[in-house]
């Protein structure tokens, strides 16, 4: 088979995929981009009857290198601050015209925690039926890795560099889910790209929720976090297993679920593969203190969200991603 024939074959195979691809390949995300994966997973379980309002950020930039688009659903770009307002407007218009299409709003952590926060709070307060998805890669990656209010404490960014005076960011990561939940919010949840089934379940729940829903997806960024592009899923999983990234659901301000941890890992397992935490492993009292700080934050999360499990269960941090060969077959009739 020559090259052209092989390509033609590929496109016919692509058309027969047993899943909805709201995002096509050819997008310009970096190798191993967690956000590109997360966006596809969200659309896989929500599409195709959706429209997307997308804030300025990596996702907007890498999917729409003019004049091409990687989106197969209606998609609209907004400025950094007003994604939620745009989504709210679309939802109101659909409502007025009795259209059932679901409105999604996509933003990064900058467009959620910082710049887009006011519009988001307003959208929720007005009760718009929108699923707002925050792709949390913990800094302004698109503009060159500047710290955001989502950047974890001690992480190095270009505006919170590690050096003699400071060990990366001085300030804590904002507890955005608690703030969102405080809006008498019908559904707010966190997910991770390392647990795609859990992520897709939460998207479905968010879609089914009448009224506003919020989903924050922990999405590794090989460029900004400075890890090997192959290790994105591994790093995301370690984030969950250490307790630093609790996977929870909150309904009307109450925590209604948490993914229990089968085996709690020390935070160093999560920090070690990432260059943004490299300075914490220097022989330096300040570094040791910050390392202990991050461990204390993980321990606090485990206690606060109740992540410690008493015995292995089907939805825990190990079982939720486990695979096996074949299915457990029924014993065929006549077998001895």
């Amino acid at each position: 088979m020559n090259n052209t024939a092989a390509l033609r074959d590929m496109s016919s195979i692509r058309q027969q995929q047993s899943r909805f691809e709201g995002l096509t390949p050819g997008h310009r995300a970096c190798q191993g981009c967690g956000q590109a994966l997360a966006a596809r997973l969200v659309l896989e379980s929500s599409g195709p009857d959706v429209v997307v309002a997308n804030a300025t950020g990596c996702l907007e930039v890498f999917t729409t290198a003019w004049p091409q688009s990687a989106w197969t659903i209606p998609w609209m770009h907004s400025v950094f601050s007003n994604t939620a307002a745009l989504a709210a407007g679309m939802e109101a218009a659909f409502k007025a015209r009795d259209i059932s299409t679901k409105v999604l709003a996509f933003a990064g952590d900058g467009g959620t925690f910082d710049i887009g926060f006011q519009a988001l709070s307003g959208m929720i307060e007005r009760g718009h039926n929108v699923l707002f998805v925050c792709y949390d890669n913990e800094a302004y990656m698109n503009t060159g890795v500047q710290r955001s209010s989502s950047t974890p404490v001690a992480a190095a960014t270009t505006t919170s560099p590690a050096g003699i005076a400071r060990t990366g960011k001085r300030h804590l990561k904002k507890d955005i889910v608690a703030i969102i939940a405080a809006h008498c919010m019908p559904y707010a949840a966190t997910a991770s790209v390392a647990y795609p089934n859990d992520l897709k379940d939460k998207v479905r729940r968010g879609i089914q929720t009448p009224g506003p829903a919020f989903l924050m997806i922990h999405s590794p960024c090989p460029l900004g976090w400075m890890h090997d592009s192959a290790k994105g899923i591994e790093v995301a999983r370690l984030g969950v297993e250490t307790g630093l990234v609790p996977l929870i659901e909150m309904e009307y301000g109450q925590q209604t679920s948490a993914m229990p941890l089968r085996r709690v890992r020390p935070v160093v397992d999560y920090l070690k593969p990432q260059g943004r935490f490299r300075h914490l492993f220097a022989d330096d009292p300040m570094a040791r203190q910050e390392l202990a700080h991050l461990q204390a934050l993980a321990d606090h999360n485990i206690a606060h969200y109740g992540l410690q499990e008493s015995q292995p269960e089907s939805g825990d941090s190990h079982a939720a991603a486990s695979v096996r060969r074949g299915t457990v077959a029924v014993v065929p009739p006549g077998a001895v």
Binding site: T24, R28, A65, S69, A70
Partner: peptide, 10 residues
């Protein structure tokens, strides 16, 4: 002409 990102072979 607007088109699909799939024209761009990453």
């Amino acid at each position: 002409q607007p088109g699909s990102a799939m024209a761009f072979k990453t």
